[in-house]
Design a protein around this nucleic acid. Structure first.
Lengths: 229, 229
DNA sequence: GAGTGGTCTAGACCACTGT
DNA sequence: CAGTGGTCTAGACCACTCC
């Protein structure tokens, strides 16, 4: 199997330090020629390494060597920016959208909302050292947070909730899965549509079974390592 | 994009109930011809649906419609067979191997073992309704369980640990990730080598920082849904 | 404008599965 | 044995990025 040989050759270049984290690989055409093969076979090798978390691809820009993943505990931590802050890596965040919407089915179910409830939705892009690595969606029941309805500023939802509400929630309910990127997500993250994303779904429910917050993070699987303890 | 149209057409067949869970799809060649395309394009559509958890593939046997996923909480449950039992679905389990080995680096780290420690390793295949869905590896420090060294029988590690040891562990430490199947795993699970597997890594550590058990489950991502609360 | 990945065609041979 | 997916060749055109 040719692609396994190619995969090993590229992996060796990475592990030996010839290709440093963040560096761009030569183009598919160049690599294919240098391994005397076709782009299709070469791409099988690259896809394998991407699944293994060693490479990632940006839409029409090329293949890059993955950097060290950030360890994230979604059962205890809602604030993904705080996680970024703990690492000595430049990060920024970009507000995508803030709006008041009728709760979609998935949101209503997870927050235990009655039909026709409105939620406030905040979405945000997470960028680590220039790479767009995650889209964060936050949903709050409007009934609980009427004062947030004027959402003109850049609101830090988690810090607002922290004092008043999250202390009542002993636990977060977390779901973890893998999904193809939606059209919107792939555009936001500069990845090809349908690429694999890791999906982290956290809901904060208090003792009275009231849902305060649903947070969904769709992230590149090579950028975060999920660890719960 | 042709493959997106094809993907939607097949997804529609599944959601409408024309293709029932567990059923085999027509061969790639037949499907490609019926969509007037080539196998490569068709496979892009199938791969998308596989990532979405709607289809799975068995090595050289064909593509099948996924069945409902089993919900599994790896932060509270070590016994994956108990999870299977809760669903009204036939399941079996097959002993793969039981041996005494020098602890590999990953195992020693997770269990906090000194260098040159031996561990008892038990591996097992999980089969739900005829489909091989998971490989389970269990590692126990030999020093703590000398009586298990004669491992001729089919030992249920979890039930042995439950009474004596696991009650001391308030929490399991869990890591979750996605990896390409190893050569061995792909043979055991009848999948092509390098296919995506969900990797669940649970370690039971007591209050004295002693590791009792490391369990690694490599499973087909469409067969289990990870939910922690 | 040159270069990139994204998508696609139209084949081929192989190792393996199921009968 | 026929049929399946696994792997591979040798191209092509497109939309987009980068310079």
């Amino acid at each position: 199997m040719q692609y396994l040989t190619i995969k090993d050759a590229i992996a060796e270049q990475i592990e030996s330090g010839m290709l440093e984290p963040g560096h761009k690989l030569p183009s598919e055409r160049v690599l294919a020629e240098s391994f005397s093969t076709t782009r299709i076979t070469l791409r099988e090798a690259l896809n394998y390494l991407a699944l293994a978390g060693k490479l990632y691809k940006e839409e029409r820009r090329g293949w890059f060597v993955s950097k060290e993943a950030l360890i994230f505990n979604p059962a205890q931590e809602l604030d993904i920016l705080k996680v970024c802050k703990q690492y000595n890596r430049g990060y920024t965040t970009e507000r995508i959208d803030s709006k008041r919407i009728l709760a979609p089915k998935m949101v209503a179910e997870r927050l235990g909302l009655p039909p026709f409830s409105y939620v406030l939705m905040f979405s945000r892009l997470v960028i680590i050292e220039g790479r767009k690595v995650a889209v964060q969606y936050q949903y709050l029941p409007e009934a609980l947070f009427p004062s947030l309805a004027k959402m003109d500023e850049d609101i830090d939802v988690v810090s607002i909730l922290k004092d008043k509400y999250l202390s009542e929630c002993q636990n977060l309910c977390v779901k973890i899965g893998v999904f193809p990127a939606t059209e919107v997500e792939s555009e936001l993250l500069n990845i090809s549509s349908g690429s694999m994303l890791l999906n982290i779904n956290q809901s904060a429910i208090n003792n009275n079974k009231t849902g305060y917050l649903l947070q969904v993070i769709s992230c590149c699987h090579d950028a975060f390592e999920i660890e719960i303890e």
